[in-house]
């Protein structure tokens, strides 16, 4: 039911764990549905310098979280931001149809992490008049 890429990311997840000094953390899903994804980002020079995930969920949920971190790591924020849940699923060679909605939320969690980063970032000082 799963592609080899899904099984690979499920069994050998990349960038799993917490990021202690994250600049932004985003979460998607809920325990009632059985999927929660948390993405941690570290931004340096407007790039995704480091990223990690924690996921409670099925094989697809773990694999999508894992591959998302690989897809955006090192990219500029502007570039990385364009990632969609669909692109994540495609990078895994597809997901079973019933998994497309409930377990494919990694990009949502990532977008929320970037949003949190923007809110956390010290505001640039207003230009002197």
């Amino acid at each position: 039911m799963y592609t080899e890429a899904v099984m690979d990311h499920f069994y050998n997840p990349r960038n799993a764990g917490e990021l202690a000094d994250a600049d932004g953390v985003g979460e998607a899903g809920n325990p009632v549905c059985g999927d929660i994804m948390k993405i941690y980002v570290k931004i340096e020079d407007d790039r995704i310098a480091d990223i990690s995930f924690q996921t409670f969920g099925c094989g697809a949920a773990i694999a999508t979280s894992s591959i998302l971190t690989e897809l955006v790591k090192g990219k500029t924020v502007a570039e990385a931001e364009k990632i969609t849940n669909r692109a994540v699923a495609e990078a895994l060679g597809g997901l079973p149809p019933q998994k497309m909605h409930c377990s494919n939320l990694a990009a949502d969690a990532f977008h929320k992490a970037l949003e949190a980063y923007r809110q956390n970032r010290p505001k640039p000082a207003p230009a002197a008049e």
């Binding site: 799963y2 069994y11 409670f56 099925c58 094989g59 949920a61």
Partner: peptide, 10 residues
């Protein structure tokens, strides 16, 4: 704290 399908796959 873990989900059943991921346990079964493993």
């Amino acid at each position: 704290f873990v989900e059943g399908e991921s346990i079964l796959l493993n």
